[in-house]
Amino acid sequence: MLNRRHLLGLAAAGLAAPSLARAQAAWPNRSIRLIAQFPPGGLVDTVSRLMAPMLAQALGQGVVVENRPGAGGLIGTDVVAKAPADGYTLLVSHASVHVYATATRPTLPFDPIADFTHMVHLVEAANVLLVRSNSPFQTLDQYVTAARTRPVRFGSSGIGSAPHLLGAMLSAEAAAPNLDHIPYAGSAPAMQDLLANNIESMVDPITTNVQQIRDGSLRALAVSSPQRLPAFPDIPTFAELGYAKLTSSQWLGLSAPKNLPAPIAERLTAIVPPMLQRPELMARFSDLQTLPRSPAPTGSDFVALMREEIRAWTTVARQFNIVVS
């Protein structure tokens, strides 16, 4: 027999369901914030600002990019993890947080899978091993041969970053124990030290080094993409040089808080992949050397890719005792 409290609860649920359905059907009826968890000027910010007007046009509401940097992307990502799942807070998710921080940090303020609705894999960028144009290292073989007998320093954007993990793997795979990691607080100071001849090399996403490679101030010895990049056909891949395990990329995705209503998630998942293939967007992605996959992994396929990368890089982090406190 139902008591008065149960009846009131059922009545409330009955009222809430149509109300929720109406809210979802009306979505969006106000502006949406797109969280970029890194500072202005970087890849996440750039891609966010390229996509925002196209999303706004497709959805009929404003899309405002909000930079929430700090703690290597954790602060902005946590903002989204704890936001209401109403479709008005979205995230340009990043492998540096959802994969590499997960693999190297003992704890995170959120679960990288369970606390989000991951919808679409947007674009990905390869890492490159860079030396100065006047470096004695003309090839990757010369580079690792030297690191087998004497210290050769490589800079990265920080402990536990994708470039750090890639360099650690190269040291092991090439049997080059003298390949020494020098961590920096970001790519910019590492690049300054490389150009000042304070370190011999650097591992970094190609997106931030396109111009220096083109103008000849930097030489790229190898790239971590599966195939050579069309814009840089002279740069060999690690895989073709015998280091297949160093095939990797740093991706960006579109995510939201967990339990995003299915109609909203389905709508975004439907409109974003074709958007990525628009000629004007592809031209900018090509300039940045960060391209979408075709077809773009969505929904459960995107999550499966994420889980596999977390598993693989966690193994690498443990192998080399790479821990970010």
Rank of each mutant, 00 (worst) to 15 (best):
S19N: 01
L20I: 02
L20M: 11
L20H: 09
L20C: 01
L20P: 00
A21Y: 10
A21E: 05
A21T: 07
R22D: 04
R22L: 15
R22S: 07
R22N: 04
R22E: 11
A23E: 14
A23Y: 00
Q24Y: 03
Q24T: 13
Q24D: 10
Q24F: 06
Q24G: 08
A25L: 13
A25I: 03
A25E: 15
A26E: 13
A26G: 09
A26W: 07
A26S: 13
W27V: 14
W27C: 10
P28R: 07
P28Q: 10
P28S: 08
P28T: 08
N29D: 15
N29M: 02
R30Y: 06
R30Q: 15
R30P: 05
S31R: 13
S31H: 12
S31D: 14
I32W: 04
I32S: 01
I32N: 01
I32G: 05
I32V: 14
I32P: 00
R33V: 15
L34M: 13
L34F: 07
L34Y: 02
L34G: 13
I35N: 07
I35A: 08
I35S: 06
A36P: 04
A36L: 06
A36V: 11
A36C: 15
A36I: 08
A36D: 09
Q37P: 13
Q37R: 01
F38M: 04
F38K: 06
F38P: 00
F38S: 00
P39L: 03
P39G: 04
P39F: 10
P39C: 11
P40N: 03
P40Q: 14
P40I: 09
P40M: 10
P40E: 13
P40Y: 05
G41E: 02
G41N: 00
G41L: 00
G41Y: 06
G42H: 02
G42S: 03
G42N: 10
G42Y: 10
G42R: 01
L43G: 05
L43T: 14
L43V: 07
L43Y: 00
L43Q: 12
V44Y: 07
V44N: 14
V44W: 02
D45F: 04
D45C: 04
D45L: 11
D45S: 11
T46C: 09
T46Y: 06
T46G: 11
T46P: 06
T46E: 14
V47F: 13
S48K: 03
S48N: 04
S48G: 12
S48V: 06
S48L: 06
R49M: 03
R49L: 00
R49T: 13
R49E: 13
R49Q: 13
L50P: 03
L50V: 12
L50R: 02
L50D: 01
L50H: 03
L50Y: 08
M51H: 01
M51N: 02
A52C: 09
A52R: 10
A52I: 06
A52K: 12
P53R: 02
P53H: 07
P53F: 11
M54R: 14
M54K: 13
M54G: 04
M54A: 12
M54D: 08
L55Q: 00
L55A: 03
L55S: 04
L55Y: 05
L55D: 07
